[in-house]
Amino acid sequence: MTSDLSFLNNIRTALKLPQGAERTKNMFPALFAKPDKSKILEKIANRSQDEKALLVDQFKANCVTLKTVLHVAETAKEVEDITVEIIRTKEPEFSYNRHIIQHNHPDISGMQLWKRFNRESVTVHTTFPGDPEITEKTIAAYIGITVPRISIAESGTLVQFTTPGCPRSTSLVPSIHIALIRGEDLVADLEEAYALIEEINPGESFVFISGPSKTADIEAHLVHGAHGPKEVHIILLKEVEKIPEAAAESQLANIAEEEACQEGTTKENADTVKEGTAGLEDPAEKMN
């Protein structure tokens, strides 16, 4: 670390500090001061149903601008149907084989996609930790499915953390990214998202994703699908309003119940926001 010492000493000289006097962060508590985030976290936790509905609307509008396809589902069954429909209707970009790769997450494995495709030539891979072939499987896949931990209404953004069962490449290498999110994970803005991130303290890697990959390097003409996914589909599972008695029950139990009641619901019920025409004049789209 000799390079550290002379480099930092050089900076101290430039700042006209006395030679050899190493400063430490403890001498300047204000520099790394952490404002109290509990108010922000409380606000996220105690948002009323009306406020939440407004956030969903804002998120929808931003998805339209970003050319993200947002599907809103009422039940877990709907989420599953929408996912199956996307897989059936989309064609692979780089090969003829229909491989999909999904994160090792209960919200995805709960769909049991492999069962839905047991009579079709669709191969479903899961990113189990320790599988040495994950990278090859991901490169072969045309669809990657993930469950971002946080979504941001203000900018239409997904926050994807990296963990052993949830590698970085799943939302990146396949041509289409399907993100399953829950209404309760939707926050208002970046400030709230950063407060949650600091609270959760994820590992060395995470990413904000706002829409499909894009470029405007050729004559400022906007093209989607430069290096990352050409299409991003977000399937938002609406938050189930908590009944006071059932408040203690887990969300999953609620959904399972509804699923049972609504067996056979057609997927047309899904409130789907297709690629809109709004925002065509928005200059933000026309950049690289």
């Binding site: 990296t162 970085r168 890697s205 990352g228």
Partner: peptide, 20 residues
């Protein structure tokens, strides 16, 4: 409001991470 991707990274892949 944000660019399409904002990547945060600060180290090699974790012990059980398949990529990175």
């Amino acid at each position: 409001k944000l660019s399409t991707y904002v990547s945060f990274t600060g180290g090699p892949r974790g012990k059980d991470d398949p990529d990175g």
